[in-house]
Design a protein around this nucleic acid. Structure first.
Length: 619
DNA sequence: CATAGGCCCG
């Protein structure tokens, strides 16, 4: 066997390998033939090689067996960097601390590269404590002046939504680049302060694709979907041209999904290839989600069918899509297919399929999935799963069992669980249980109670206990509690129009309201009568009728009827659950105007056709 | 040898 005795030759070979990234087998073969013990720099190169080919463990063995007092800083940096890429691993921080305790005469000391990597690693940890300690060291040793180090600190504080700390680092920097600005944007976006982020975005001297991505994803993150799409459109027109990337596409599709903006969503789909964006798994997941949430489960299916080996995200998106369309049995089939394909479901997948069971009344199947999720797939039920499970039982009318689950669950029930339970009490008109639940909620801490108060008031209202309603409302008024405002979106000719309950903002609002009055009159002719049991204010009947009349989905539908041609379908998306009154009104409107009306509410799709709804009044 | 962004969820 030939031995590479010449160090020079070995080095050259390793350099060559660094570029080539050979398979591990070849690397090990060469490794075996090299005499490394004689020269440190060869070990260094080998470590480098293994790290380059993602063989961290082999590199680590070489690193641990280093024959010299200490590896040079550069080698430490390589290894620390490799571990920081394994997001969530503590190892690079451990190594960093080890490095500080070295006391050989020629010890390695951390430099600006070390700090950059280790701070990045801190950003991926659950806790920021190490990050703060290391920030302290950086302050002392002067590396704060290094652009990379300071930028990684801004990013770290951004990840933890520590806006003030991020901005403080930013302010103290002598030199800023697009990374500094973008990381700062990210901090404000994560901290939910999109208005300030927008301001900074205008101020910053140069923007690139990531800066735009942060603005778009930030807007999506805080529910400003129309704003996200506005950024996306602005990006398309910006000069000089900014290259689109996968993250931007995924975020824009997500915004379309939330808004039900099918035209814009399919436009993006059609333009993916042209922009050199690959249809990666992430993009496909987003496409499936977008089509499903825009009411086109057929298109979602087509995207899914074109995937040769669907991964867990693709499956999850498809299953959730089928579920919100009320296709629970299909969702279960898809879930089973996934298991056959040996793809392990994650917690979101289980949530999706449970949701499907819930909307299709598949109680038995849902029970079996819920009770087996931990033993079969190792998924410990989280509060979300309990919420869904309680919803499943509650909707189907098993109220006592649902309450039993809530009382015995190992986690404290949250607002969602209570909402599921209380809304089941409302649907099934169970006053007795409703009051017991209210008593229960009364004993909760103030924070959970604040969220529960709106539910309480709604339940009291539906029970006709107006004294209690106003009592709760008074308390809420003092706390300035902001509940979700009813909001609906409709896309007409590629433009998304937004309506809020009792809207005054839309430029054609007067016309729309007149149209709505006329529509409701005609709906009345086929038997629709305003249902005001769920109006939560203590108003006169006439006022209550007005309150439901101006629910945002009715305004959006009126606008849709005004501005689309006869017989075409009308699609509306709403952020809350559809109320009973709107539900019956839409059935009547679909019949009188001979239109298909598709409404996606907070939890599922309703397709109104000829006086009936696809949910069979089960929602 | 180093830094920024993202999907599926009641």
């Amino acid at each position: 066997m030939q031995t590479y005795s010449s160090i020079q030759f070995s080095r050259k070979l390793l350099c060559h390998l660094l570029c080539k990234r050979p398979p591990i087998s070849e690397l090990k073969k060469i490794h075996a033939q090299i005499i490394i013990s004689s020269h440190a720099s060869l070990t260094d190169s080998l470590i480098h090689c293994y790290l380059h080919t993602n063989n961290v463990n082999v590199a680590r063995i070489l690193f641990n067996n280093y024959h010299f007092p200490s590896p040079p800083t550069l080698v430490w940096n390589l290894v620390i960097r490799a571990y920081s890429k394994l997001q969530g691993s503590l190892e690079s921080i451990n190594l960093f601390y080890q490095m500080l305790t070295l006391d050989h005469p020629f010890s390695a000391v951390p430099d600006e590269y070390t700090f950059t990597s280790v701070i990045t690693s801190c950003a991926h940890q659950k806790s920021i404590v190490h990050g703060e300690i290391i920030h302290g060291m950086v302050k002392k040793n002067g590396y704060l002046m290094n652009l990379y180090v300071a930028n990684s600190l801004i990013n770290m504080y951004a990840v933890f939504a520590r806006v003030d700390d991020a901005h403080k680092v930013f302010n103290e920097m002598s030199e800023l680049d697009v990374f500094s600005w973008t990381s700062l944007l990210c901090a404000y976006a994560k901290g939910g302060k999109m208005d300030i982020a927008s301001q900074l975005f205008e101020e910053m001297p140069a923007r690139n694709d990531v800066s735009w991505a942060v603005m778009i994803s930030g807007s999506v993150g805080c529910g400003r979907y129309a704003k996200a799409l506005a950024y996306f459109c602005k990006l398309g027109k910006s000069e000089p041209k900014v290259k689109l990337n996968e993250a931007i596409i995924v975020c824009a599709l997500s915004a379309c999904a939330h808004l039900g903006a099918l035209d814009q969503g399919s436009w993006i789909h059609g333009n993916i290839d042209k922009n050199g964006i690959l249809e990666t798994s992430n993009v496909r997941t987003a496409l499936i989600d977008m089509y499903a949430k825009c009411g086109r489960i057929d298109c979602a299916n087509r995207v899914f069918d074109n995937i040769s080996k669907p991964d867990v995200h693709n499956f999850t998106s498809m299953i959730s899509g089928l579920s919100i369309h009320g296709l629970g049995r299909h969702a279960i089939c898809m879930f089973n297919r996934m298991l056959v394909d040996k793809i392990k479901p994650n917690e979101v997948t289980v949530l999706g399929v449970l949701n499907g069971c819930s909307h299709s009344g598949l109680v038995k199947q849902g029970l079996s999935i819920f009770y087996n999720m931990e033993s079969s797939w190792g998924i410990v039920p989280k509060i979300e799963h309990y919420g869904c499970f309680v919803d499943l039982l509650g909707r189907a009318g098993y109220l006592a069992k649902a309450f039993g689950v809530v009382k015995s669950m190992p986690i404290d029930p949250d607002i969602v669980v209570w909402r599921a339970l209380l809304s089941a009490c409302r649907v099934h008109r169970n006053t007795y249980l409703g009051e017991r639940i209210i008593n229960h909620i009364g004993q909760l801490d103030s924070q959970s109670r604040r969220g529960a108060e709106i539910l309480l008031s709604n339940l009291y209202a539906s029970l006709g206990k107006w004294d209690n309603v106003s009592l709760v409302r008074q308390v809420m008024g003092k706390q300035k509690h902001q509940s979700d405002i009813g909001c609906s979106w409709i896309e007409v000719n590629g433009v998304v129009h937004e309506f809020r309950v009792a809207d005054q903002l839309h430029p054609q609002i007067i016309e729309i309201r007149n149209k709505l009055s006329e529509i409701l009159k005609r709906a009345g002719l086929v038997g629709y009568a305003a249902n005001i049991t769920h109006v939560s204010f203590d108003l006169s009947d006439e006022e209550k009728e007005q309150a439901v009349a101006w629910h945002s989905e009715k305004l959006a539908i009126a606008f849709g009827l005004m501005s689309t041609s006869p017989k075409t379908s009308i699609r509306v998306v709403k952020n809350l659950r559809t109320c009973e009154d709107c539900h019956s009104a839409l059935k009547a409107i679909a019949k009188v105007y001979d239109r298909e009306i598709i409404v996606r509410d907070r939890s599922r799709f309703h397709t109104f056709r000829d006086g009936k709804c696809s949910c069979n009044n089960y929602w």
